[in-house]
Design a protein around this nucleic acid. Sequence first.
DNA 1: GTTCACCCTGAACGATCGTTCGAAGACGCC
DNA 2: GGCGTCTTCGAACGATCGTTCAGGGTGAAC
Lengths: 207, 207
Amino acid sequence: MTSVAHDQKLDSLLAVAARVFAERGYDSTSMRDLARASGVSLAGLYYYVQSKEELLFLIQSRNFEAVLEGMRDRLADATDPLEKLIRFIDNHLDYFASHMAEMKVLSHEAGALTGDYLTQVNTTKREYTRALMDILADVERTHGPAHVNRRVAAYSLFGMMNWIYNWYDPFGDVAVQALSQSVCRLFLGGYIGLPVSESALPRTTAG
Amino acid sequence: MTSVAHDQKLDSLLAVAARVFAERGYDSTSMRDLARASGVSLAGLYYYVQSKEELLFLIQSRNFEAVLEGMRDRLADATDPLEKLIRFIDNHLDYFASHMAEMKVLSHEAGALTGDYLTQVNTTKREYTRALMDILADVERTHGPAHVNRRVAAYSLFGMMNWIYNWYDPFGDVAVQALSQSVCRLFLGGYIGLPVSESALPRTTAG
DNA sequence: GTTCACCCTGAACGATCGTTCGAAGACGCC
DNA sequence: GGCGTCTTCGAACGATCGTTCAGGGTGAAC
């Protein structure tokens, strides 16, 4: 049925597709481009995938689920709402920086999916957004009233974090930890007027 | 040569194109789609425009120039660096909210241009980014050291502001002024730890 | 040695793409 | 009426798109 070799080949196809989609954009990437980039014949792609849109869907859903799962793991043993928020941001940027191509495709080609594909990804998106909103509500309970509307704050934070595919270079002179610290400081300082101390900021998370 | 009627027709074509590009995306919008949406024949479009890419270029460059010009106007009589920054944000969001389709095309289809078109828009983009960086440098001089790296802060602010095409509804329950105030509070609170007082925040700018 | 499921391919399908071309209305000016 | 310029159009061009299909290897199972 689903052999290991088959799954591995599909994974590598998804990796190639994510890279090309990120470079050229989903719509202007042809299946022939992907065939060339992956070394598989044009028809051979359709042995592993039903359609071009399924390729996009698999990239988006798998990586989004990974972000969601990573968040749940990191939040599992967090008690302080503020720490939860910091870990939420840290998880998001960590995954983003180590999967730039995939996350660019997830952020930038959100509107390219249709039908059930779109519905399913949107469900995950709603769940993820809800998780952040709940954390923000907790933060407000324990650290006084927020300075801005919660929904505006949530989407502003997503904007800060998801925009990085437009400028951030994970191999440049700003390390991921520094980026994460900066975003935490920026957001927390404005949201609840809290100067974030060094100790509270996220650090390198091994593994 | 360039009659008024001609220019007006081109303007309306650009408005239609911006709307459709924002809805369906540049790449998956066909010239036939634009012909249908504008009531002009397919061949008729090419009387006003040399190519599909020129349509995208005109939308991006004209609106970007408008944002740039609006910023220069609003900054002309500002002395305090903090006030400059607030006006910069206010101008950006004001224009964004009143030209959502055009600005979505500008933000989202930035990578769709090529050659000289791309070079020209990128020149404007660099100028605009430089303006913000200069303001931030001024703010740091007059309001103490920043809490985060200036370049990271600048792009985070652009992220907050440009991401709004993904969620913001200008006709919803969050007015543009409220949005602008929120972004100012969020950014300034985190950037220099300054709680922004009501009086310092932007208000409705008539005209 | 035959069978069979799995993996992959060249060639083609119909559809749609951006763009062009020659010509025909519209309209003021002589 | 005739002329020239500005607008607009139907029809077609070659290219490229996503997808399909019939078939050829391959290697383990019997």
